[in-house]
Write a protein that binds this DNA or RNA. Structure first.
Lengths: 190, 190
DNA sequence: GACTGGTCGTTCGGAGCCAAATTGTACGGA
DNA sequence: TCCGTACAATTTGGCTCCGAACGACCAGTC
């Protein structure tokens, strides 16, 4: 498990490494812990309630989105679930093959695909969600309701900051330079 | 981008779906936002400072851990970086092949491997870390220092809760039943 | 020395993931 | 009707990740 050596200690070492160049420690600690917590929570949930139903975090989130919002177009589902359209294609087909999800073409626009839960999927979520929520409660057991709300609100602001200004910021950083292609992924044809 | 439909609205829908079964909303919102924020932050950092040096989040974290803590045994690095031993094997070899990291067998125990940065790796981190920290500051720009500290502290409690009591909890949930094997992963030889 | 049990890192199978390229549908003008 | 553009999902390629199985190694015991 991560974090046995304290983060605050790490901050000091990092600062020493840089010999005087100042570091925003609070921001560093916040980001580091966001990621740690996300990984810990995901791992715990996959290894407790989800494993039993043979779901991963991603498949569960996709099911959850469709369950909550009802029949939806797939690009919206991808957006809500925080995954790319390409990933959703695979995930939704897996779920379809397991009889939990339906995929139908939009009645008036042949390009779009509508996702909805089957009765079986519906039943699964009704059973699973309370269990899931119980584990959410477990992992946050050291926080009061008020603290949970505070944290949720703070993190919402982080997400919003990136959504609203991230693109612009990245462009500014590049400063006109070439956007440096991703190492993985499909290569240009030529 | 995720989250255009509000989470609070989703909570109400989920509760309605369950027809009276109570949900811990604050805990649900906290967990959902932890994950959203982690994904958003990771994406922003990979697409800004890391992309230029052809690093992913994981490779950067591994470099960072070794940079901060100095030469370390690989199982400790995996633990600190929050990745599995298996993943670290691949990552550290990639970094070695790029001349950023050294891998040496432990002088007195032939099983262990010691990881350290090369001069080139050291130089890269000295250049990169301030840039990284600047983006950490960017994503948390809507939060005060005090709020960053509060959030970091709250999330630390979440991580600790899972680390300290997660295993026990998962065993209790299974209640003696078989641990339900993972779908993916290496199969027995037989 | 040969067992034995425990602890390393490594291997490997399957799922996930992104983003570019591609395919297919829609729709407004020539 | 035939284009061209726009926008939808899908395919594809490369990489990441976990975790079970595995093999190398260590220490203790007989």
């Amino acid at each position: 498990m991560p974090g046995h050596r304290s983060i605050t200690e790490a901050e000091k070492l990092a600062e020493a490494k840089l010999g005087g160049i100042p570091i925003r420690r609070d921001q560093m600690a916040a980001v580091a812990n966001i990621y740690r917590a996300a990984a810990a929570v995901r791992q715990h949930l996959e290894n407790s309630v989800l494993r039993g139903s043979d779901l991963t975090w991603t498949t569960f989130v996709v099911l959850w989105v469709v369950w909550v919002w009802g029949e939806s177009e797939s690009r919206h589902v991808a957006e809500e679930a925080g995954i790319s359209k390409g990933t959703l294609t695979g995930v939704s087909r897996t779920l379809e093959s397991r009889g939990l999800m339906r995929r139908a073409v939009h009645p008036s626009d042949g390009r779009r695909v509508l996702l909805s839960l089957t009765d079986e999927g519906e039943a699964l979520m009704e059973r699973l969600f309370p269990e899931f929520n119980a584990e959410e409660t477990f992992v946050t057991a050291q926080l009061s309701d008020e603290e949970c709300r505070r944290i949720a609100e703070g993190l919402r602001r982080v997400v919003l900051q990136v959504e609203l200004h991230g693109e612009e910021r990245r462009l500014a950083l590049l400063d006109g330079a070439a956007p440096a292609p991703r190492r993985s992924g499909r290569r240009p044809r030529s």
